[in-house]
């Protein structure tokens, strides 16, 4: 029998790279993601589980915290999105599920959301053309998260570093629509 290795297809089909050095865009097809939804009245317990397993406090405001190779994004009141690189076939749903029996639901989001990273010194200008929130460093800093929209597509945006690098995720089926807007927005900064 043939040894078949299944490789997930990227959600971004109509993809191209942006020439030049002022802004770069990267598909992040290498992530595993899971949604953590707290059951009624169990939020203290959930915070404690994360504290003992990862040594961090889950953010109660729109922030991202990272520990032991796993990031937790604030994803709404009493909700978080866990994100990690899928190295060694990691699967966050399988990792988190046993920790939260009876206190929270863990739902795999790996193939539900498409993720892209935009970085470079013009990244902010590229995003400003479609993202309605203020991304100026005085208002949105490294570690900040916002649930908003870009060009009418619902996104979760997160600033990863001071480069700046922004990680943006959206529902998978919107990936190419988002990318089309992104490429148009990048055009004036490419050379």
């Amino acid at each position: 029998m043939a040894n078949t290795q299944w490789v997930a297809a990227s959600a971004f089909v109509e993809w191209r790279d942006i020439p030049g050095s002022s802004v770069s865009v990267t598909r992040r097809d290498d992530l595993t993601m899971a949604n953590l939804g707290v059951f009624e009245g169990q939020s203290d317990k959930v915070l404690e589980v994360i504290r003992s397993a990862y040594g961090i406090d889950l953010p109660r405001t729109p922030k991202i915290v990272t520990a032991r190779g796993t990031s937790f994004l604030w994803y709404g009141p009493n909700q978080w999105l866990a994100v990690a690189a899928r190295e060694q076939n990691r699967d966050l749903e399988l990792e988190l599920e046993p920790l939260f029996s009876g206190v929270a639901s863990i739902v795999d989001q790996t193939d539900a959301r498409a993720v892209v990273e935009i970085s470079g010194h013009r990244a902010r200008d590229v995003l400003a053309k479609g993202v309605p929130i203020d991304l100026h460093p005085s208002a949105f800093k490294t570690g900040d998260v916002a649930i908003t929209h870009a060009s009418h597509i619902g996104i979760v945006i997160c600033q990863m570093d001071d480069n700046p690098t922004y990680q943006i995720s959206m529902f998978r089926s919107f990936a190419d629509s988002f990318a089309e807007w992104l490429f148009h927005s990048c055009e004036e900064f490419s050379n």
Partner: peptide, 11 residues
Amino acid sequence: PCCGERSLDEF
């Protein structure tokens, strides 16, 4: 109260 000030088109 969760996200900060946002414009009307998000609501």
